[in-house]
Computed example of a mutant assay.
Amino acid sequence: MSDMMYFDHAATTPVHPRVIEAMTPYLTQVFGNPSSVHGAGRQARQALERARDQIAAFMDADPQSLIFTSGGTEADNMAIIGGAMAQAERGRHIITSQIEHHAVLHACEYLERNGFEVTYLPVDETGMVQLSDLKQAVREDTVLVSIMYGNNEVGTIQPIEEIGAFLRERGIIFHTDAVQAFGVLPVQVRQLPVDMLSVSAHKINGPKGVGALYLAKKIPISPIAHGGSQERKRRAGTENLAGIVGFAEATKVVAEEAEERISKYKQMRAAMLGVWQEEGIRYHVNGHPEQVLPHILNVSFLGVHTETMLMNLDLVQIAAASGSACTSGSLELSHVLQAMHLGDEIENSAIRFSFGITNTVEEARLAAHSVAKIARRLARDR
Rank of each mutant, 00 (worst) to 15 (best):
111 L>W: 10
114 N>G: 03
115 G>Y: 03
115 G>A: 05
117 E>M: 01
118 V>G: 05
119 T>M: 04
121 L>C: 08
124 D>L: 07
124 D>A: 12
125 E>S: 14
127 G>Q: 08
128 M>I: 02
128 M>H: 06
128 M>T: 13
130 Q>T: 04
132 S>L: 02
132 S>H: 12
132 S>P: 03
133 D>G: 07
133 D>E: 13
133 D>K: 09
134 L>S: 08
135 K>E: 12
135 K>G: 02
138 V>D: 05
138 V>E: 03
140 E>W: 10
141 D>V: 04
141 D>F: 01
145 V>N: 01
145 V>W: 01
145 V>C: 05
146 S>T: 15
147 I>H: 06
149 Y>C: 13
150 G>I: 07
150 G>P: 11
150 G>Q: 05
151 N>T: 00
152 N>L: 05
152 N>Y: 05
153 E>F: 00
153 E>N: 11
153 E>Q: 10
154 V>G: 10
157 I>M: 13
157 I>N: 12
159 P>R: 01
159 P>A: 00
161 E>Q: 11
161 E>L: 06
163 I>V: 08
165 A>K: 14
165 A>E: 11
165 A>Y: 01
167 L>R: 05
169 E>Y: 01
172 I>N: 06
172 I>Q: 07
172 I>W: 09
172 I>S: 05
173 I>V: 15
173 I>Q: 08
174 F>E: 04
175 H>I: 03
175 H>N: 14
176 T>C: 08
176 T>G: 06
177 D>W: 07
177 D>K: 11
177 D>C: 05
178 A>V: 04
179 V>H: 02
179 V>C: 15
179 V>F: 05
180 Q>T: 11
181 A>W: 14
181 A>P: 14
182 F>W: 14
184 V>S: 13
185 L>G: 06
185 L>I: 01
187 V>D: 12
188 Q>E: 09
188 Q>N: 13
189 V>M: 13
189 V>H: 14
190 R>Q: 14
190 R>Y: 00
190 R>F: 04
190 R>L: 00
192 L>E: 06
192 L>M: 14
194 V>L: 01
194 V>W: 05
195 D>L: 11
196 M>C: 10
197 L>N: 15
198 S>K: 06
199 V>Y: 06
199 V>M: 12
200 S>K: 09
200 S>A: 12
201 A>V: 06
202 H>S: 15
203 K>Q: 13
204 I>K: 15
207 P>I: 01
208 K>G: 13
208 K>R: 07
